[in-house]
Design a binder for these strands. Structure first.
Lengths: 158, 158
DNA sequence: GGTGAAAGATTGACCGC
DNA sequence: GCGGTCAATCTTTCACC
């Protein structure tokens, strides 16, 4: 997990791999101007150091029966460590919750959730939020449009 | 982009590929109980039909100089189509905005943003939000902890 | 980091159900 | 239509410079 400084070859590789992790190393090698083995060694190093966390297939929720998505803002009754841990555990174990953040401000958590339909969401919200006495309020923002799909982390300095 | 019904082989493959898109097809084949070519044909179909949107490397923002992240809630002055389009265009073109959703309710957009430091975020917020007369209010929720990293879309029925 | 070669994976052709 | 086998091709990856 040691983070070495990234040179411009590494940054270019990260840019390319964030767009498409499936392309042959030989193609990447051409694109960055290194030989395939040199490229391969760099990619391996980026994985080992944790700069590349993992390589995954992105599945379209809509195509597999999850046409709705929501952003949910949760406020707790109390913010003690035990309550926070308990809530995080719940969120991590719920498959429909795709992302979750513990945040500052008026709310304590922001969640991104998918649902099969409104009824499905309502069931989940009742079960996870309304029935949980540690939760003071929850606010549901229904996603109308995905404006920007998960985008590459900038590596070539903005 | 036609969506055929997914059988249990497809679902198992999607589950495995969402966890690790880099494993050899031969390993996937063993795991699901098909021959590598049969597996490969299914994966190709899942890609062509758009169920698999893409395959990407996930980069840790922290490791490449973006240690802060925020959820930002935006409310517009007016919600006419032209204003919405204009805002979406701005969000899509800003590299530090990693995800953006158009939502219902008290706010119009939810954004996930990374920043190098608070000053960097403040600059961006001034430039994009405070200086934009179409934006009525924006609320920043600073992420304290990533509770749940981007998780697989459930495919084996919850 | 490059070269060249070995090992391994992907992928097409073809067969049978 | 589906999957299986076999083989050709391409990629990954190692050893060595």
């Amino acid at each position: 997990m040691k983070v070495d400084p990234l040179d411009s070859f590494d940054r270019k590789l990260l840019e390319l791999l964030q767009a498409d992790a499936q392309q042959p190393v030989s193609v990447l090698a051409d694109a960055v101007g290194l030989s395939p083995p040199a490229c391969y060694r760099r990619i391996r190093r980026l994985r080992a150091s944790g700069v590349i966390e993992r390589e995954i297939a992105v599945v379209r929720p809509r195509q597999v029966g999850w046409p709705l998505s929501m952003i949910v803002l949760i406020s707790l009754e109390r913010e003690d460590a035990h309550t926070l841990d308990e809530m995080m555990e719940i969120f991590r174990n719920e498959p429909e919750i795709l992302e979750a953040w513990n945040v500052t401000g008026d709310h304590d958590f922001a969640l991104r959730i998918v649902a099969r339909d409104m009824e499905g969401y309502d069931d989940l919200a009742q079960r996870l939020f309304a029935a949980n006495e540690r939760i003071r309020t929850f606010k549901t923002l229904v996603v109308i449009r995905e404006v920007k799909p998960l985008s590459p982390v900038p590596v070539n300095d903005v």
